[in-house]
Design a protein around this nucleic acid. Structure first.
Lengths: 256, 256
DNA sequence: CGCCCTTTGTTCTTAATTTCACAAGCCGCT
DNA sequence: AGCGGCTTGTGAAATTAAGAACAAAGGGCG
């Protein structure tokens, strides 16, 4: 009774896989060794059958009557997503967002190794950004011929996005994480994932409107509030103290 | 022959609505006054029928035989998403990412007004971040009682996310844009949208693996590359020059 | 002023995703 | 060693989204 990733895997499944991995890492750190799909549902809200089916695309991972071994499942999902090995990543655009990403420890923790940063602003080229030096965008192809990164993060203004995307493709990039609010045109063998804050905010704004009939209504901040862990006990530090400092410990923080 | 947003609108439709808006703004800036769904498909890759159907959830926007008036459609979509009016937003977490967001001009351009920033790090509290002063997280409820923001951006480490989310709910927030890789538990009347870079990268990584059989393979950087606008003519500036400088002009840049 | 060409709004089909439901498998206890 | 309680993996049903297809409507031109 098996199948193991025969045909194609639904994209939503892949997206959840990353979530599961995240969750499993947390469980592992809490020294939990086994978990059932029912418990996953209880803690994440993701339907238990969904969880099992998602995994079933890749084989059998659990033991009937017992559940899943946290450590084992964790490493197997990591292998599926190919983040059990180092993945070299390059970044284009050393602006606010780009800089924030370079300093984000979560990348290294997940084996995404940022190996180069490019920009076209002469005021920035040559300057250091964390541990890297900002390189001239014109050297993109040349530099990546050696680095051989396949993943690129595109954090440039919308107006420049398509042009840079073309350069990335030409430089051998096969996957682009695009932060510019533009639909990129690339060859079919290149995968693109878009991240748009504005789009997300717009969706939130829409939902808000439904209840906020026309504003000016007193909602009183003491509504039924609570629900989950309201008595937020232990208080953890927000924002990684000072970026540099926060490096060391894996899994310590992840916001970004 | 109309309907106008009777029941519920599919979330994917809402997401695309924001994309359409973006696209329309670009068209408008190119002084294009009218556009047909067929042309939208040609330029964005989004199916024409899809475009028409998405709009049909909210009424009639075009003229048969003619198409859609760019300016009109633009403002009507903005109204639907409720971003035709100012939306106050608060940010929690003045780390790398949070700081980058505060400086992002796209927010203002879309009427999202960042009215306060909070953190719990005493080294940061009281310090200025762009035009705002970083406030102590303990003042969240008190401050928002006056500001009455309904949308919050959560850019704190995973370990602190749930605790802060509880505080946000208690402070009257109804929509949360969550950057922490954690599934938040909130009352059903609160809407949450998650943004996870790592998840996106993981999906990209997975797709990569399919072709990159086992690495070590010479792919030659001069593969069939091209496709779309390869001769990237005019070259625009990457990363908003220097943050402060880039403020002024609306629509000028949008990466983030 | 009526014909023809174009493009919308919408219904009907097809495809994708989620959820249900249950046989089969594993564990522990007697 | 076998019974009972749980939990998995998965085929089949239900739900949801995407895409085609077409009747109705607008505009321009002869």
């Amino acid at each position: 009774m098996t199948a193991i990733s025969n045909g194609k895997v639904p994209v939503p499944t892949l997206e959840r896989l990353a979530t599961y991995l995240r969750f499993l890492i947390d469980l592992d750190q809490s020294d939990i060794e086994t978990i059932s799909s029912a418990e996953v549902e209880r803690q994440t809200g993701i339907n238990a059958a969904q969880f099992r089916k998602d995994l079933s695309y890749f084989g059998e991972f659990g033991k009937p009557g017992v559940g899943y071994n946290v450590k084992d499942l964790q490493s197997r999902i990591a292998r599926i997503l190919k983040i059990d090995r180092e993945q070299r990543v390059i970044l284009v655009g050393a602006g606010n967002l780009g800089s924030a990403l370079v300093g984000y420890p979560g990348l290294k923790e997940h084996r995404f190794n940022l190996v180069a940063v490019f920009d076209n602003n002469y005021g920035k080229i040559g300057r250091p950004l964390w541990e890297l030096e900002i390189l001239d965008i014109v050297r993109l192809k040349e530099v990546n011929a050696k680095l051989r990164a396949r993943i690129a993060i595109l954090a440039v203004p919308a107006s420049a996005a398509q042009g840079v995307a073309d350069m990335l493709v030409d430089a051998g990039i096969h996957a682009i994480l695009n932060f510019a609010p533009v639909i990129l045109r690339v060859p079919e063998y290149v995968v693109v994932r878009n991240v748009s804050f504005l789009q997300e905010l717009a969706v939130l704004s829409y939902h808000l409107s439904a209840e906020q009939s026309e504003d000016g209504h007193e909602l009183g901040s003491q509504n039924g509030a609570s629900e989950s862990s309201n008595g937020n006990s232990a208080f953890h530090p927000l924002s990684e103290a000072t970026p540099e400092t926060a490096e060391s410990r894996a899994q310590a923080h992840d916001a970004v």
